[in-house]
């Protein structure tokens, strides 16, 4: 249980080291960079090691910088007060990743939102249907850098 156990297991199973993540102003945080196909196993490991609180899912479109779509999952271990960021990169022309909503139900709404805004296909998600955006914006993946909004003023 706990972060140390998690770091050990992540090393053995996926060969990734925990990196310090000083960018979190709030708390002590570690960063794991994983392959997208491992997301489900990693989520299960997190859950088993006391990371029971999900905070947020933050995708970033790095296509103008010559990179792909980056996904950041923020989890917290409430007892140890340790945060973990799971970072992975998926290609923008075929953005697909396994849904982990059944392991962390809090993610169901978050994944649905990011599907709507980025067009990320979360495989196995039961409710990928419009939620926040106007009908005229559906399917335009408004949060991608390739989408330029029409200005109000002429």
């Amino acid at each position: 249980m706990g972060f140390e156990n998690l770091a050990k297991l992540m090393k053995t199973y996926f060969g990734v080291e925990a990196e310090e993540y000083p960018q979190n102003r709030t708390a002590k945080t570690y960063l794991f960079k994983i392959q997208p196909e491992h997301i489900r196993e990693v989520a299960k490991l997190l859950k088993e090691n006391g990371f029971n609180f999900f905070h947020t899912l933050a995708p970033v479109d790095y296509s103008p910088k010559g990179r792909e779509l980056e996904l950041n999952y923020f989890f917290e271990n409430l007892e140890e007060k340790v945060w973990v960021v799971i970072r992975t990169e998926i290609p923008l022309d075929n953005p697909e990743i396994d849904s982990i909503h059944d392991i962390y139900p809090a993610l169901e709404a978050c994944e649905r939102e990011e599907w709507e805004k980025f067009g990320i296909q979360f495989k196995g998600h039961p409710r990928l249907k419009p939620m926040l955006l106007d009908d005229t914006l559906q399917g335009k993946w408004v949060q991608r850098k390739s989408y330029i909004p029409k200005p109000h003023r002429k």
């Binding site: 805004k117 926040l132 955006l133 408004v142």
Partner: peptide, 10 residues
Amino acid sequence: PGYVTRNLEK
């Protein structure tokens, strides 16, 4: 939800 979305992130 979604009746007052402004998409502030964008």
